[in-house]
Design a protein around this nucleic acid. Sequence first.
DNA 1: TCAACGTATTGTTATTTATCAGTTTTGTTT
DNA 2: AAACAAAACTGATAAATAACAATACGTTGA
Lengths: 232, 232
Amino acid sequence: MNENTCMGSVCAECSFRSSIFSILNDEQLDQLTINKTFNFAKKNEAIAKQGNPVKGAIFLRVGLAKLTRVNSVGREQIIGIATPNDFVGLLSIFSSKNYNYNIIAIEDCQYCCVDYTFVMDLINANSNFAMTLLEKISQVSDLMMGTRLNLEMRQLRGRVAFILSYLSKEIYKSAKFNLPISRREIAELVDMRVENVVRILSEFRRDNIIRIEGASIEIVEPEKLEWIKMHG
Amino acid sequence: MNENTCMGSVCAECSFRSSIFSILNDEQLDQLTINKTFNFAKKNEAIAKQGNPVKGAIFLRVGLAKLTRVNSVGREQIIGIATPNDFVGLLSIFSSKNYNYNIIAIEDCQYCCVDYTFVMDLINANSNFAMTLLEKISQVSDLMMGTRLNLEMRQLRGRVAFILSYLSKEIYKSAKFNLPISRREIAELVDMRVENVVRILSEFRRDNIIRIEGASIEIVEPEKLEWIKMHG
DNA sequence: TCAACGTATTGTTATTTATCAGTTTTGTTT
DNA sequence: AAACAAAACTGATAAATAACAATACGTTGA
């Protein structure tokens, strides 16, 4: 049977199950099965919308999703990219009744949504679960924060190098990959103008640091890219 | 007796006690008294250092402190400012064995440090405590993240307006206050150059938006400042 | 009190980035 | 296949920011 299917919706048998739930006992896993929904989102479809009430914890199984928000000037800003096995919007559950950003599929996605009150029940019933959740949340926000802080101090060339490196190392774990996002989305992600994204990508290609063929990007000289990433 | 003293170190009687601990029972509060230390930090003194092991949860009672880190280019970057009643470094406790930033007093500070293992014990013993902690952590990181994201999209004038407004509204709750940080620190906080901080402050003064007398700053036209903060 | 140092300030210039305008390419719909 | 729209790209120019240089100011310590 296909690894990509949710096996009869039984969480205990799920190959995607988040490490957070490794702590649960059999009974709790059965409960999880009941209290979660399994969903699909087509590319560009919203998984969650800024301002909408939080229904539960969203666990991304397959596909990439972007976290975005509309800033005060009305410009779309991408906060980060969620990858398979990520709990997205974990912070929102506890800090607010509503999502404070959008979660939008940038590839076809599969995700589970674990009911809000069930999560709360688990916290009460299982202090280990609470602890694991605390760790997870802290790590995720530390990581996000670190990424944003790193981006802030770079100039454009460094930012583009940063996300190319990020996609290659963190997301695809390969020097060659299909760029999942448009130039405009890169611009929104690192807070710059589309024209400059294009220009700098062309520059990297001209300098033989990367190779571009359609949507495919290959990082030819990772060391050079790392240098630019570090030194601007 | 002075509100600023730690009354015989008995947490149950402490007027500064964090809302997090409102959930504890008397016995747990007694335990808290034993498992915390009360400390002072002079201006510019480090309360915690990047890379050092996390000893516990730091609760700021009196004074302001800055959270800083050294970025990859070796430049000091200020992540945020902690105000009285803040738990600083709450994230670090759960995400890492070491602090990933410095906590440095920008005024004379008083703070309590609650032992790491005691916090863990509390989480195990009291699921309400765990829940409150989850909420607190989420709110803090949401807030921080929001602030950084807001800063990213502004240009220099907007960023300076942003922190002036922040100091006035969030920290001093007054139109007139003594600037607690130097021009260089403002620059580090909003990621710009000292010269530009100076220039823009002078510009604001020239335009009669603010008044500067030594370290004292008065916001004369809050509406104009807000406009600049929003529209760059 | 002077020397030394860090901070604040101002002016000038170089560099970086945004904006505008237009063309080409690519993908989608009919 | 044609028509259209969105995305990718390129060049020219304007605006914003950084970098450099020099001076003033204030504090600290000898």
